Amino acid sequence: MNAVILGAGGQLGRALRQEFPDAIALGRAELDVTDATAVRAQNWAGVDVVLNAAAWTAVDAAEDPAHHAAVRAANVDAVGYLAAAAEEHGFALVHISSEYVFDGTHPGPIPEDLPPSPLSVYGRSKADGDAHATGIERHWLVRTTWVVGEGSNFVRTMAGLADRGISPTVVDDQIGRPTFAADLAAGIRHLVETGAPHGTYNLTSDGEPASWADVAKAVFTARGRSADDVTPISTAEYFAGKTGIAPRPLNSVLDLSKIREAGFRPRDWRDALRSHLGGPR
C-alpha cells in the first residue's frame, strides 16, 4: 500500500510514521495543503491512501479574528483541496476530526452520527472541513480527543510541573479520555489495512472517562507526587476574567462501539499513560 502522511511533523504525524514506515511523509515545507495550486501539482500517481494529520489546532488562538482566515485555510479549504485530489486520482482519504465539532451537552458517549453543534471558531472549522472529507466516497473520518504524543501536550506539561514541585489548579468538569497518538495511529492503520467500511469512526484511548484534573492526578501519582497536589476547579472559575478563550465542550466522551466492532480495541488510557511516562524524564 502506497501511503502519504500530511502533517508528518506533528504528534499524530510522528506516530503515523511509525505505523506506516514506508509512507511518504510530508510536512508543511514539503507540501502546503492550504495552497490549492501546490495540492493540484503534487504527484499523486500510485498513491493508495492519504493520511491527513495537518490542521490548525490552537483552539484559543483560533478565536482571534486576525487568525480566522488561516484557521479556515488549514481546517476547511485544505480538506476540500485534498478531497478533490482524492476524487481525481483515486486515493482514499483519512481525515482527523475532533469532539470540538459538538457542544458537549449530549448525555452520555457521543455517537458518530450526532449532528455537529460547534461552540468555537476551531470547532466550526473542523465541522466544515469534515463536510468536505465526507463528501467523497472513499474516506475514513477519524474523530478523536485530547491527543498525547511526542511533543507539546497536557500530559507533558503536567509531568513537568510535577517534576519541578509545582502544584497546579486543573479543571474538573470537562470529561473525556486522553488519546495516545500511538493508539490513534494504530487504529488508523487497522481501518486502512483491513479495508474497514468507509465512513466516520470515533477513535480515542479506552477506559473510564475522566476529567482533566483526574488525568493530572494520574500523572502526578506516576511521578511520585500526591494526587492531592492537584487542585480541581470548574471551567468557569478557571477562565474567569480571561479573554480570547475558546468555549470548551464539557462532554468529550466519544462512543467507541463502532471502532471496536471494526476489530480494533484501544488501550485503557491509564495503561497507555503509564507506558508513555515510563521513558526517561
Rank of each mutant, 00 (worst) to 15 (best):
K258Y: 04
R177Y: 07
R281V: 14
G108K: 12
F180P: 00
A45W: 10
A54Y: 02
V192R: 07
A222V: 06
F20A: 02
E19K: 03
D271Q: 13
D128A: 15
D163E: 15
S120R: 02
N52F: 02
P107K: 15
F239M: 11
G27R: 03
A272T: 07
T57H: 09
V71P: 02
D183M: 08
S252M: 14
V49Y: 03
S167F: 09
A85P: 01
G108R: 11
P115A: 12
G104V: 02
S117Q: 08
P65W: 08
V192K: 07
T235S: 13
L184N: 01
L256I: 12
V39N: 03
A55G: 09
N153K: 12
T57N: 08
A66H: 13
L26N: 03
Y238A: 13
P247Q: 08
A181L: 06
E99Y: 13
F220M: 10
R28T: 07
A83P: 03
E261L: 14
L51D: 01
A8G: 04
G46M: 12
E193H: 09
V219I: 11
G27N: 06
H276I: 04
W140K: 00
A62N: 06
I24W: 07
E237H: 10
A85N: 03
E19P: 02
R156P: 04
A25S: 10
F239E: 05
R138W: 10
L161I: 09
R164K: 14
A181I: 05
W140D: 01
L51G: 00
T105V: 11
A36Q: 14
D35F: 06
A38R: 08
G263T: 12
T37E: 12
Y81C: 02
S205C: 15
G135R: 09
A58T: 11
F20Q: 02
I166C: 10
G160Y: 05
F102H: 07
K258C: 03
D103C: 07
D172C: 12
A218K: 01
R267N: 11
T144A: 11
A8V: 06
Q18F: 13
S97F: 03
T37Q: 10
L250H: 13
E261I: 14
E208C: 08
F264Q: 01
